[in-house]
Nucleic acid binder design. Sequence first.
DNA 1: GTCTATACCTGGATAGAC
DNA 2: GTCTATCCAGGTATAGAC
Lengths: 193, 193
Amino acid sequence: MIVTDKITDRRELILDTALRLFTDRGYFNTSVRDIQKEATVSTGSIYHHFENKEAIAKALLAQIESTMVDEIDLIMEATPSAHDRCKAVLKYLFEATENNRDAMHYMLHAKHNEFISNEGPICTSRPFSLMKTIIVEGIRKGEVRNLTPEIVAVNIFGGAIRLICLRIDGVVDKPLPMYLEEFWECTCYGITA
Amino acid sequence: MIVTDKITDRRELILDTALRLFTDRGYFNTSVRDIQKEATVSTGSIYHHFENKEAIAKALLAQIESTMVDEIDLIMEATPSAHDRCKAVLKYLFEATENNRDAMHYMLHAKHNEFISNEGPICTSRPFSLMKTIIVEGIRKGEVRNLTPEIVAVNIFGGAIRLICLRIDGVVDKPLPMYLEEFWECTCYGITA
DNA sequence: GTCTATACCTGGATAGAC
DNA sequence: GTCTATCCAGGTATAGAC
């Protein structure tokens, strides 16, 4: 997501620095001037490419959300069983946390509706509805226990998202993929000894 | 928390309205003027009771954190087994979400370190370390599976916190205590059919 | 302790040259 | 498309009367 091996145009550069600053200090603690200085671009240039500050935030969200959806779609095509799908999604999320920390931070650990108007909470976004779909199908096919899908989903992915947030906040110090097996074991078979 | 059957003094009134506005619109979308108008107090009065806007946020956090710690302490005194303790804590959290939604919102669903300086992420706060303690003791006594405590904790409480956030965001429409049994079942014995 | 008035500054956004 | 200079609103915070 936001591949920046070589920043081609100004637009990319602006998005890239904005993402860095938004995740680092938060949206409201980042002024347009900050972005301007950090990216060594002019104010005019920023406002040429984006209508306003909020539009930058919106563009970032759309970009990241889209790559997440693509990734999960790939997993769903390649994998039929609900269990394998869930585990593969977790694997992807954990790896992305290490490889694209800022993007994951922005996607999972920011309150977009506080700065993007008409934006619902993340859980209503497309990647999340895909995750719920996996669960619903899993229950229908008898692979997953027949409980309220939302509860099951929150048990699997909610816990994972919290773990990702802990990692982003620097509370967990080992790379998340190292915990994948253990986490998955715990989710599938519970915590009871 | 923040018992406001009858608002005695101005200080309480300010805190109470600030909490409402902070959770409703977010800290940065709430100006001191907003608090002043909404509480029908004067700016001078606010700055008499609090050093600055941040101090209001700090006071709120301390107050809510303190009542949560008291509540969990009570549970730990009354309940010996790790399982019962966890379930009781979940019950408390779910009920508090319904009865003190704003307080829970502020505690669990806000990024304090973006507006309170020198404040770590919530997970480093006292209520959360108590939760981890419950798990660690449970593992030691053989009641909980012998896995990394953080992973187990995030599986139980992380999922619960996400569920609380979903409820706060209006995505879950039934009161959380209704899901307690199901959630707990799912956590203890896993999601595998 | 509470009020009103106001100072001061930073933030978002625009204008217009190049 | 990019720059510099600038405008203006709204934010936090203070001063000083009552």
